[in-house]
Structures are given as C-alpha cells and as structure tokens.
C-alpha cells in the first residue's frame, strides 16, 4: 500500500513538473507570442488585443494559474489554427492514436515474447542466431522504412488495407482499426525486435537460475518449466521495458502518422509545432507526457501483481 502511495505521489509530482515545463515553453521561446501568432505585419492594436486575450501581461505565476486551472477543469483553450476547442480536438486524436499505440504494443508483445523465449531456450544454436539477426535487422531499420514496405505490400500490391486516411474509433471502430493497422504494424516491427532481444536476455538469465533446475528435478515438463516457471519471472522486466517504450512510440508516431496520412495525435502535434499554435503545443506535449507517465504507473502497479517481492518496498 505504501508502495502504491509512493508511486502515485511521485507521478503527481512529475506531472506537476511537466506542466511547469510545457507552460514555460510559451515564455521561454524567443520572440513575442502575439507576433508569432499574427505575423510581423499585424497592426499594433490587434496584437495588443491578442496579448490581452491571452493574458500575456499578467505575472507569470498568474498565467500559469490560469492555464493549469483550465487544464484541470477541462478548459484547454482554443487552438489558433483549427479555431476549435483544444479539449475536443485532443480527445478525438488521442483515441485514434492510442489505438495505434495499443495495437502496435500488442503486436510487438505477441510476437516478441514467444520469439525471445524460443531464442533463449535454443541459446547459442541456429534458432538463437536467426532470432537475433532478425531482431537486429528490425532494430536497425527505421519505422518509416517498414511503413513504406507495408504500404507497398498490403496497400499497393495486395490491396487489403488502406494506405492512408483516418477514422475516429468512437464513430466507426472497424474502419478505424483498418486505418490503424498498417501504421501500428510499422511501429510494432521495430518495437518487436527490441522486445525480442530483451525477452531473450532476461530469459537466458532466468533459465540459468537454480530454481529452474529444481523445477526440472521435480519432474515437471519442459513446457511447464519454461512457460510457467521461467516466463513468470521474465514478465516483470519485459513489462517494464515495454512500458518505457510507450514514450518512444509517441515520439515515432509523428513520423508514421505523417507517412500514412493518419491525422492522429502525432499529426496534430506536428501541425501545432509547424504553425506555432502555442496553446495546442502546450496541451499536446502535456497530454503525451501524462499518457506516458500514466502507462508507466500502470506498468509499475502490474509489476506488483507479477512479482510478490515488490510489495515489501
């Protein structure tokens, strides 16, 4: 229980720091915010009006208070380029992109865990070299390469899946799934390679432990020894690595969404950056950071379920 409270408190503290940093972006970037938004040719009255409406004359602390107050009450402000409430925009985009992220993580784990275990069991034999060569290839090639290959194969040649486009999963889930699948696969391949290597090395360590030998000495079948005794111990470390990769996924998603013309969270962030839509930049950076942190919190809590030793902490 104290572990849970500790973890929650530290997450809240980090979130607070993130909110400070993202907020500071507005004030630390060189140049006048209003001028950045309206352009250098804008007339002074209009600029002044914008400054007033953005509250740029208030002391820094007051500005932060306004902003964080809005964030907490669901009023995220209005996007300058889309002229729409940021809250609604984010909600739609994050749904779509979360679909990609969850899907790619699912694909990656579903393939990486069996493959990694298989490689570890056949350690130093051809199966192991095959798995490690394949995953080295996966790690070293960038996501957009896989994206292009997938488009060529599944969209152009086979025509099974759309090569571009976007659908809101809240409106049409099957369609959203069809659109999300290829981007998810492109992201998942690199991730899978990474997770395979992690699973393998974790399992190699575990299979050398004495309790594995004890399990065999009890007469348990190899299947039980490896997939129950072994894997139960590997789940924690693998989950932790997978959780940390969520942050990496939200970074890579910008490239992949652009490639697939999938107008999700990555695309939105990119547009915001490109057009200096500061309220939107603040909001999307904060949301991505929050999502990454919350996933890691969930992973840590799951770890407690997987490994009883953590409860002592």
């Amino acid at each position: 229980m104290s572990f849970l409270i500790n973890r929650l408190l530290s997450t809240l503290l980090t979130l607070f720091l993130v909110s400070l940093i993202t907020f500071a972006i507005t004030n630390l970037l060189p140049g006048d915010v209003a001028m950045m938004i309206m352009g250098t040719q804008a007339n002074p009255e209009a600029l002044e009006g914008l400054r007033q409406s953005l509250g740029l004359h208030d002391p820094m602390l007051v500005q932060y208070g306004h902003w964080i107050g809005g964030v907490l009450t669901g009023d995220w402000g209005t996007s300058l380029i889309f002229k729409a409430p940021i809250g609604d925009l984010l909600a739609q985009k994050i749904r779509a992109s979360a679909l990609i992220v969850v899907l790619s993580m699912g694909i990656a784990l579903a393939a990486a865990v069996p493959l990694g275990v298989w490689a570890a069991v056949h350690r130093d034999r051809w199966q192991d070299s095959a798995a490690s060569t394949a995953s080295l290839l996966g790690v070293s090639l960038p996501d957009f390469f896989w994206g292009i290959m997938l488009i060529l194969l599944f969209a152009r040649t086979l025509g099974w899946l759309p090569s571009s486009g976007f659908a809101d999963p809240a409106i049409d889930f099957p369609l959203a799934l069809r659109h999300a699948f290829l981007p998810a696969l492109a992201l998942g391949l690199g991730l899978m390679a990474h997770l395979t290597r992690m699973t393998r090395s974790t399992m190699v360590g575990i299979l050398n432990q004495e309790f594995i030998r004890v399990a065999r000495a009890k007469g348990l079948s190899e299947r039980t020894v490896i997939w129950r005794y072994g894997l139960a111990n590997a789940l924690g470390p693998v989950m932790t690595i997978a959780g940390l990769q969520i942050g990496y996924l939200f970074g890579s998603i910008i490239v992949v969404e652009t490639l697939f013309n999938f107008t999700g969270m990555g695309w939105l962030t990119y547009q915001a950056l490109l057009n200096r839509d500061l309220p939107l930049i603040q909001a999307s950076v904060f949301v991505i950071a929050a999502v990454v942190m919350l996933t890691n919190l969930v992973v840590d809590l799951l770890y407690v379920l997987v490994d009883p030793r953590i409860r002592l902490e």
Partner: peptide, 29 residues
C-alpha cells in the same frame, strides 16, 4: 525425477521460484 528420485541443491536462496507461493511449489510435483 521428483517422484522416485528427489534432489536438493546448494543455494536455498535461489532454489525456490521467487514469484510462486510455497504451496504452489510444494504441490506441483
């Protein structure tokens, strides 16, 4: 194994699976 021949090892700290209860490890044989 574990039926007609039982075996115990040197390291009691690592001979038991850390993530399973004592009951599970006693009963799976």
């Amino acid at each position: 194994r574990g039926n007609e021949i039982g075996m115990i090892f040197q390291e009691p700290m690592t001979s038991l699976n850390p993530v399973f209860t004592i009951e599970r490890q006693l009963t799976d044989g």
